[in-house]
Design a protein around this nucleic acid. Structure first.
Lengths: 246, 246
DNA sequence: CCGCGAGAAACCGTATACGGTATTCAAATC
DNA sequence: GATTTGAATACCGTATACGGTTTCTCGCGG
């Protein structure tokens, strides 16, 4: 967007030093992306401000921005992570299925050599994480892989829009990398995409991303179904162990 | 997004009365959508605050939100409308072409009877505006038509994302409804979409929206090309009339 | 006339304070 | 024990003030 700035006035924060609210925003967003925010936790602007050593206003601005972008939901008692329903997830995947195959095809075209070596590092991290069954490491590798190919897109609007949608699903622990079968789906998806990116094969990237979207969505709903079954079993066991009261 | 609110705390502004910053945001966004903001004008938070009779902070929040959503660009001297390059326009249309045909197909499925009668009112307005060559009226009719079918989508994320992209193009005067050939393209597009919506024909809606995207993009670039030619002619004439100086 | 420098003005970003609303907690009542 | 009521508390939204950075204006010198 810096291109669109009027010539007479500098864009805000032309210098390297971002504003406090921008820095808080980026930091909190990163923590949300890495699932470092407790799902039931509340982010209160005064607490955030204290933890960053600032006044309330920049913290509030950052939180409001995250809320406007769908990362958080404002309540009368702080900001919380959104609880996505199945319909929400379906809606998100609907948009991703429209955008992501084309974006992957563009990335196979737009990736530079430097981007490709970053991609190689990220896939190596993902492989190691899978080998070691290290969920946190896989989350980071996945974020890096995705940031790399999305960052290569010449269409920044497409990249930013897509990144947002992907982030929204990732904040849900169930059905994402915290779920074992999903990890396999993702690892396989990364490998096949990596191959097409390295070969600059846009058609393959498109088709493989399409397939990955379908597999990822199905993995999510399978995990949800399994969770429902587990809750039913747990509830039945819990009923059996309740003390008999009048 | 209200569905995603934690049950224990009320969502912010549960009451009908939105916050000041929300109201300023909505009002300014509407004015941007209707091209009521001077393209070279600056929106300064203190002036906005004074015109709405509030303090600076809610005005600032509204402006920041509009900037984060791409409607405005912040500078060291107020907020300005973005000057979109041809590449920007191309990027925007790339995303629209991915989303809008599917969205139109969904709308043909999701529109209610009430939605359809609103659509009828909007198309009647558009027809009258074309007959009277009334640009402002056509802008309003176009906004109403679009708001109607987008508002019908069950996938709000898709609707909101798309609305944003459409808005961004509309703020550019050239190549939009201020351009005569583009008006014809838009009017024809509305008519064909209206037909498929009323018949609940999702396949037709999809295909007609696809065609409309292509026609709209081409109209934009044609208008831009004509503008460049006009500027060349004007510059040549201007050179011929300059007084001869050493 | 043009360029440069200094000072003033215009903004933005942030800090602090205040008030309103929703939630929580404690005490009283049934 | 359960429910209700009122007060206290915890937040959010906004108002006001302050300081830093950028831009503008004016005067001076070449």
């Amino acid at each position: 967007m810096a291109r669109a700035t009027a010539k007479r006035f500098a864009p805000l924060r032309l210098s390297k030093q971002d504003s406090l609210s921008e820095r808080i925003y980026l930091d909190l967003r990163g923590r949300l992306q890495r699932c470092e925010i407790e799902p039931d936790g509340r982010l209160v602007d005064l607490e955030i401000a204290n933890s960053y050593g600032t006044s309330r206003m920049p913290a509030r601005e950052a939180l409001l921005r995250l809320a406007n972008e769908g990362y958080l939901v404002g309540t009368t008692r702080g900001f919380v992570t959104p609880k996505l329903s199945l319909a929400d997830i379906r809606d998100i995947f609907e948009v991703r299925k429209l955008l992501e195959p084309r974006a992957a095809a563009n990335a196979a075209r737009d990736l530079t050599d430097r981007g490709r070596s970053e991609l190689s590092r990220a896939i190596a991290e993902a492989r190691a994480a899978m080998r070691d069954d290290d969920v946190d490491r896989l989350i980071l590798a996945n974020i890096a892989f995705r940031g790399c190919w999305l960052g290569a897109l010449s269409n920044e609007r497409l990249a930013n829009t897509l990144a947002r949608f992907v982030d929204h699903v990732q904040t849900v622990r169930l059905g994402t990398l915290h779920d074992h079968p999903t990890r396999t789906v993702v690892a396989n998806g990364l490998e096949s995409l990596y191959d097409s990116f390295m070969r600059r094969d846009s058609v393959a990237a498109h088709d493989r991303m399409s397939a990955f979207m379908t597999a990822a969505e199905q993995a999510f709903f399978a995990a949800h179904k399994a969770e429902i079954e587990r809750e039913k079993t747990s509830r039945a066991a819990s009923r059996a162990s309740l003390p008999q009261t009048a």
